[in-house]
Structure formats: C-alpha cells, structure tokens
C-alpha cells in the first residue's frame, strides 16, 4: 500500500502524483522505474520515476490516460492508497561529468523520465541542453522543473503554439548543425519519436541513450514480456535496461510488441467507461 500525497492534472489526459514511498525514494536513481497496481484486480503498470525526495519520502510519477488502468489511476485522489507500489527497478543511467555538452531530448510524456537524468547531470557540473516538445502548448509538461535542470532549454511544439514549430528531432538537427562540442545525448519519448530522433543524432555522430517502455509484467527479469532486440540480441528491458544505446535498438519490433493487446485494452477500457457512466 502506498498513499497518494499529491495529485495534479496537467492537461486533459496528463496527471502527476506524489506517492508516499520512503524506501523507494531513498534508493531511487535517475533512469529507474517503478511498478504500481491501483487495486486488487488491477494490472502492473510500469512508470519511469519523474522525481524523488529522499528527505520527504515521496516519488513523483507522471502518466497519460491511455486505457482502463491509467484512467482508473487518474480517478484516484489524494489520501487514497495504491494497492501496490514497487521500485526502484532497472539499471540507473550511467552519469558522469562529460567534456562536451550533453543533450536531453524529451517528447510528450517522455519529458518526465528525462527530468531526473538532466537534474543529476547538471548537479555533476555538466552543460545540459534540453530540448522538450509536445503536440501543443497545453501538453507541454514540467517546463519549470526542466528550466532548473538545464543550462539551456529549447521548447518545440508540433503546431507552433509554443517555442519552435516542428518536431524535436528537427530542432535537434538544427542545434547540432551549429554546435559540435556534444558528448552524449538522452532521448526519451514515444518509440516513433525516439526512432527518428536517434537517427537525427547519429547523422551528427552523437551517441544516444534511450529509455524503453515495452509491456512488462513483473519487472524483475522473471517473465521476459519486455524483451527487446538490441544489437541483434534479445534483452529484457526491465533488468538489462530500461536504457539502451539508441543506435542498436530495433524500434519497429518494440512498436509492434507494444500493440500486442490493443484489442483487449480497447475492450476493457470501453467496458470500464460504460460502467462508470451507468
């Protein structure tokens, strides 16, 4: 059981919650994730940690409502208890003081997991350039936190309602066209965004790390649901990742595997909405 300490709605479908989880908060490092279950009949939902306070004993999660489970999570309120909350899971990001600049690219909900990595890199004395993007201004999250965690912050929206108009990969290419002193980059967002942004970075010879979010069950290496192909080899994202070298990831397979339960998810969400209306 873990209590929801604070809940915020950031857009029509994006929510943030601070979850009371003392030991998780103490152990959490950038790049790691948690798994939660809303109620006894619920499924295990993996979410990357957006922030954590070991002093205050909370972990921040950010999620978008995409189906029944995230919808039910969004209906929970401050003071409610999650049925289960486990973490931190996965291998932390490998962070150091780099010679050149580091670039953080966050797309949509992917800005949340980019945040703790950027924050830590900046604390370590890096020059952190963050490029964050979303479809439209309303969906752009964590601007203030990213501002603090970055040396330079570049904003992009697909419709031009805020910052540069266009996709983050284009903004990244424009940046790399002018700036050659770049050591490494992290790119986190929907798989399609990661796929194209990795290609953009590689054009300029910049090494990329991505954080993968395949379907998971236990999240501790026990079931293999989260297998991904990296450099031609099968890896378990939960214990071998979730971060991998972007150049080596088979994104097409990842996207295909993420759609395994599309029909079941639709059915469950539909039934759930009908029940709520009734």
């Amino acid at each position: 059981m873990a209590k929801i300490l604070k809940k915020e709605q950031w857009s029509e479908s994006i929510f943030s919650m601070l979850i009371e989880a003392n030991e998780v908060a103490k152990a959490a490092q950038p790049g790691q994730f948690i798994i939660l279950i809303t109620q006894e009949s619920g499924e295990r939902i993996p979410l990357t940690i957006a922030d954590a306070s070991p002093e205050e004993g909370w972990v921040q999660i950010v999620f978008q409502v995409v189906g029944k489970s995230t919808y039910e999570l969004s209906l929970m309120n401050e003071g409610d208890n999650l049925y289960s909350f486990v973490g931190p899971l996965g291998i932390p990001s490998e962070l150091e003081k780099f010679d050149g600049k580091v670039i953080m690219v966050g797309g949509g909900i992917g800005i949340a997991p980019i945040h703790p990595i950027a924050k830590k890199l900046k604390e370590m004395g890096n020059h952190v350039v963050s490029i964050i993007g979303a479809k439209t201004s309303d969906l752009l999250i964590m601007k203030d936190k990213m501002e603090k965690a970055s040396t330079e912050l570049i904003i992009a929206t697909d419709d031009g309602s805020e910052g540069t108009k266009g996709f983050v990969n284009q903004v990244l290419e424009n940046y790399l066209e002018k700036e050659k002193n770049v050591s490494q980059s992290w790119i986190i967002g929907p798989p399609i965004m990661m796929k194209f942004t990795v290609q953009s970075a590689l054009k300029y010879g910049v090494k990329t790390f991505v954080s993968l979010n395949p379907i998971m069950v236990d999240g501790t290496g026990m079931c293999g649901a989260c297998r991904v192909t990296v450099g031609g080899k099968t890896k378990f994202a939960c214990v071998d990742g979730p971060e991998f070298d972007g150049a080596l990831v088979d994104f097409d397979e990842l996207m295909s595997r993420q759609r395994q339960y599309v029909e079941e998810e639709k059915e469950a969400y539909h039934m759930c909405l009908n029940e709520r209306r009734a």
């Binding site: 009949s41 619920g42 499924e43 295990r44 029944k68 489970s69 069950v217 236990d218 026990m222 079931c223 339960y261 079941e264 998810e265 059915e267 469950a268 039934m271």
Partner: peptide, 18 residues
C-alpha cells in the same frame, strides 16, 4: 503462467491483465 495465475488473466476483463 504469471499472467494467468498471479494476475488472474483467465478472468479478464474482470481482472485487468490480458
């Protein structure tokens, strides 16, 4: 087996795991 036993996917959609 984990889906069916621990998560009770055999009872989907009453249980959420497919």
């Amino acid at each position: 087996l984990t889906r069916s036993n621990l998560m009770r996917a055999f009872d989907f959609p009453k249980y959420d795991t497919p």
